[in-house]
Design a protein around this nucleic acid. Structure first.
Length: 954
RNA sequence: GCGGGUGUGGUGAAAUUGGUAGACACGCUAGACUUAGGAUCUAGUGCCGCAAGGUGUGGGGGUUCGAGUCCCUCCACCCGCACCA
């Protein structure tokens, strides 16, 4: 019988489905294990060979754990709300629900092609009302809770109101937008709107006027992690800072727990660092500076209070609330001019240009609380509104940026730290002895910091404070394709939560998805929906992409529950995700939000664990080869001219050589036109070396939405390329569809090959060449079961010791390697075993039966087929993992490498239990060794049992 | 600039605690078979050398009987963050 992977695979796929082999129950005596993949956003271009890498690894692990006796939850679903579907809707007029459903169908068929053991009965789709009902429900919980810093947990708004009724803000320690102070009488005197505003100051989901990342091209605001280098992560459009009334999540309330609980997780150090950096904890002091001629105080934050005597000026952010008040009449011109300049600067410019020193003097002075010196107050964009208090004391002697600023504007610099004892120390290192610093003189920096902190608290001019870089997450999107907010407003603008029984608040139908005017969501145009019959108004913003993905792993535990987001029993059984597999691109976004939601639900008593994802594995990206094409045209003067340079400019690509290949219009290529499509466009989905330097005729043009539009006249030129390893993407024409590979080699081969490519966490370019080796291996393995006539011939004969040894060596190696997620070496181990068994012409049931169970997680179809050929009636995937018997691994002898001065010269076999002395004596006496010892003295002989022998001579 | 990572044959890579560097594959070379295949099998394949031998894990230095592995230093590339007070 020949190995025909596609026939086998279809047969067993149907069998598994019919038998519900991968269905998992929430009740079991077995220990639980939860293996989760980051669910995909079903994009229009389908899966490419890079996507399944993590899914294959997690599937192998899930199957392995199942065989080892665990009740394994291994689900899959779709993150189905999002921008691309909506962009597509705007362009093509297709409803996002329709295109999303089509994309999901395509993803499903691609996933089904790869032999995954997902329990599809638990599939989630974040855009379905039955799912987003609970996204809205969790949002309402966030809306109706606040964070009590004293108890370090979320508490109900009712408790907060009770506190206000009794004590006002007295004794309240709460996470809030700004510190408020009122007594109970003032609270009860407030009208509904005022009370609503106060509560918004504390709610974990709150609405507030804030500076947000506005993306004009997308017509919506974006969260910080959705902005990269001042451009939107999706689409790469410019983003600007703009004040807008927006929903936010008070994730900063959880900053400390997010940071400290990282210690409980098995994540890579890199991943923990990324999270820690994003949280950005720093310990320092809050300090108040009196303002000359004003009752106001200027609040600053510093991590270096010890440098207070070197503070020769203050800098506040241009957007700081006090700027207008601080500015004196004669400085108003300068300040206004500077503010105009700041306003013209895009976020992008601001970020890319951090070297230029700019600023303006307000004319106002602050008073140094320690030495009562007058300190001028400046504004500059290097001080950020969002961090700390948006104001600093500048110490040019001890801070690089302050120094540059002082030098540019001629401000005084007072040396305060003597670093002469620390030659290599940089300006920012916390070492040295204090000078010119009054009571701090002579102290070491670290002591001085503590002494200053004490003095600050003693003099009541500030206090020790902890600051975080983490910002609250902007939670509003001015889009259609997202979860509607379950919040309504009355005519006065007071907000009310929808009742739980009114959930889900379904997304209304719309036929035009373009944003409404004035930065409003498309929903705002549907006035009959916005204006409710009861006189209230709907919120028209929708929730961001990360809403649905922040808790989907909980829904899988009990995916069809209509009463609650997941039943308590199911949650208490599954608890948390044991293994989470996904890309690093979610290091700060998704993983941070999911952790906050988890901790919040834990606070409310819905979850038994403090963290959602115990172990995290980041699969590396599978890259493609990008062939960039450029055209050169011979000019009369002999110099070549790059025709594409102009095109590149139009397309906003700075480096012409980085242009994707498809822009070329090749009218003729020698006599062979087979590489041209119907329009005569060469889409270089593969590159042939002979194209390099080939002459051709071309016209310039653009390529949009699959249509080439020629511009300009035909010219002659030459073709040049440059290749580079990079992202696999539709726009580079380097996408390889797993379906094509599977069709040719089978999905077992595809799975094995993706694992064989290298370590799971490493990025690597896809190269189909090596797959033949894996394919050969599978056929060789298959052939072990059949004789020369193609008849099944696995015998009942008792295996030899050598055969048992091959089996158990492989069991040991594969088991250890799976446990450390080293799947590439597992595949090697299978190859080695197969090569050895082939050589022995071994085909015995006692060997092949366990061997099949060992390889089953990797090659589920083939192993199932052979398992049934061996006479079994039930699925191999429901059996037990083969047991290791170390007895077979015991060696009678060991082949020692014998080295002289560390260089291996020859090898010699000794009995495993040979005494050190015997080995030493015999090794030195060997003829092959003696010739190396001539004329030299043996100084020492090192014998490490079962390792090596080293003879030291001199 | 800061933080993290990686550097090993022509290629993907392996070497789990310091102990025979290059397992396993791809590719290449030679050969066998042939119902001529995208098939299979055999042998070889780090580099230099006919060989003996030498040499070799980004460069330089160190610790050690012994270093791809540990320490110092420099270089290159990749990823993340970036005026964070």
């Amino acid at each position: 019988m020949d190995y025909r992977p596609r026939d086998i695979e279809k047969k067993w796929k149907t069998y598994w489905e019919d038998q519900d082999v991968y269905k998992v129950s929430n009740q079991s005596d077995k220990p639980k294990y939860y293996v989760l993949d980051m669910f995909p956003y079903p994009s229009g271009s389908g899966l490419h060979v890079g996507h399944p890498l993590g899914y294959i690894a997690s599937d192998i692990f899930a199957r392995y754990k199942r065989l080892r006796g665990f009740n394994v939850l291994h689900p899959m679903g779709y993150d189905a709300f999002g921008l691309p579907a909506e962009q597509y809707a705007i362009q093509m007029g297709v409803h996002p629900a329709k295109s999303t459903a089509e994309n999901i169908a395509r993803y499903r068929s691609q996933l089904d092609n790869l032999g995954f053991s997902f329990d599809w009965s638990r599939e989630v789709n974040t855009s379905k009302p039955s799912y987003y009902k609970w996204t809205q429900w969790i949002f309402l919980q966030l809306f109706q809770h606040w964070y009590d810093q004293e108890q370090a947990k979320a508490r109900s708004i009712e408790a907060l109101i009770a506190h206000f009724d009794a004590h006002g803000t007295e004794g309240l320690k709460a996470a809030c937008s700004e510190e408020l102070s009122f007594d109970s009488a003032a609270w009860s005197a407030m009208d509904a709107k005022a009370k609503d505003d106060v509560l918004m100051n504390y709610r974990l989901a709150y609405k507030k006027q804030t500076f947000v990342n506005w993306c004009e091209a997308l017509g919506t605001v974006l969260a910080n992690d959705e902005v990269k280098d001042g451009l939107s992560e999706r689409g790469g459009h410019p983003v600007e800072r703009r004040p807008m009334l927006q929903w936010s999540l008070r994730i900063t309330a959880y900053a400390e727990r997010l940071l400290s609980d990282l210690d409980t997780l098995e994540w890579s150090d890199a991943m923990k660092k990324m999270q820690a950096n994003w949280i950005g904890k720093s310990i320092g002091a809050q300090m108040f500076f009196d303002l000359e001629g004003s009752d106001e105080k200027l609040e600053i934050f510093t991590t270096r209070p010890d440098t207070i005597f070197g503070a020769t000026f203050m800098v506040v952010a241009p957007e700081h609330d006090l700027v207008a008040e601080l500015t004196t009449a004669e400085q108003k011109g300068d300040i206004d001019k500077y503010l105009d300049y700041v306003n013209t600067r895009s976020e992008r410019e601001r970020m890319s240009d951090v070297k230029t020193v700019t600023g303006a003097f307000t004319g106002a002075y602050a008073i140094n609380p320690f030495n009562k010196e007058r300190v001028p107050i400046w504004i500059s964009e290097y001080v950020l509104k969002d961090y700390g208090t948006g104001a600093i004391m500048a110490v040019p002697a001890d801070d690089e940026r302050d120094r540059r600023f002082a030098e540019k504007f001629g401000l005084p610099i007072i040396d305060i730290i003597d670093k002469s004892a620390h030659p290599g120390a940089t300006i920012e290192d916390k070492v040295g002895t204090m000078i010119n610093s009054d009571f701090l003189n002579g102290m070491e920096v670290l002591d001085a910091i503590q002494a200053t902190l004490d003095a600050i608290e003693q003099r009541k001019i500030g206090k020790k404070q902890i600051n975080y870089k983490l910002r609250d997450a902007i939670y509003s999107r001015q889009r259609y394709w997202g979860e509607p907010f379950p919040v309504i407003y009355d005519a006065a603008g007071v907000s009310y939560p929808l009742k739980e029984e009114d959930l889900p608040l379904e997304l209304p139908e719309l036929d035009d998805f373009k944003p409404a005017s004035g930065g409003k969501s498309p929903l705002a145009r549907k006035t009959e929906w916005v204006n409710r019959p009861d006189g209230f108004f709907h919120e028209t913003d929708t929730m961001p992409g990360f809403a649905g993905s922040s808790w989907y792993y909980l829904r899988y535990m009990d995916a069809t529950n209509a009463e609650t987001f997941a039943g308590q029993e199911a949650i208490n059984y599954w608890r948390d995700v044991d293994l989470y597999v996904g890309g690093t691109e979610h290091a700060v976004g998704h993983l941070m939000y999911a952790r906050v939601w988890h901790k919040f639900l834990y606070d409310l008593g819905h979850l038994p664990t403090i963290e959602p994802f115990q172990k995290l594995i980041n699969q590396g990206m599978i890259q493609g080869v990008i062939e960039y094409l450029y055209l050169s045209k011979e000019k009369k003067d002999g110099q070549s001219q790059f025709v594409c340079a102009k095109l590149a400019e139009e397309r906003g690509i700075e480096d012409f050589a980085r242009m994707p290949v498809y822009v070329a219009y090749v009218a003729d290529y020698g006599t062979d036109n087979s590489h041209l499509n119907a329009e005569g466009i060469r889409q270089f989905t593969e590159w042939r070396p002979e194209f390099e330097g080939a002459a051709f005729e071309c016209v310039e043009g653009t390529y949009q939405n699959g249509v080439f539009q020629p511009k300009g006249e035909q010219t002659e030129g030459r073709l040049h390329t440059k290749s580079e390893v990079g992202k696999m993407s539709k726009r580079y024409f380097n996408v390889i569809n797993p379906d094509d590979v599977v069709e040719r080699y089978g999905s077992d081969c595809f799975r094995l090959y993706e694992m064989f490519l290298g370590p799971i966490e490493q990025a690597k370019p896809w190269d189909t060449k090596g797959i033949d080796g894996v394919s050969r291996f599978l056929r060789k393995f298959w052939a072990l079961f059949f004789d020369g006539q193609g008849d099944f011939h696995c015998s009942d004969e008792e295996p030899t010791k050598a055969e048992f040894k091959i089996l158990h060596k492989t069991i040991k190696k594969v088991t250890e390697d799976i446990e450390r997620f080293s799947f590439n070496t597992c595949v090697s181990a299978f190859m080695v075993a197969t090569n050895e068994l082939s050589k022995l012409k071994s085909s015995k049931k006692q060997i092949m039966n366990p061997m099949l169970r060992l390889i089953a997680p990797f090659a589920p179809h083939m192993s199932e087929e052979l398992w049934h050929q061996l006479g079994h009636e039930t699925s191999i995937h429901l059996t037990e993992y083969p047991a290791l018997n170390e007895e077979y691994l015991k060696e009678d002898a060991f082949t020692y490498p014998i080295a002289i001065n560390g260089k291996t010269r020859l090898t010699m076999e000794f009995p495993a239990d040979a005494a050190k002395e015997t080995i030493e004596k015999e090794a030195v006496a060997l003829e092959g060794i003696q010739k190396w010892l001539e004329g030299k003295t043996v100084r020492k002989v090192i014998v490490v049992p079962k390792r090596m022998i080293n003879i030291v001579v001199g």
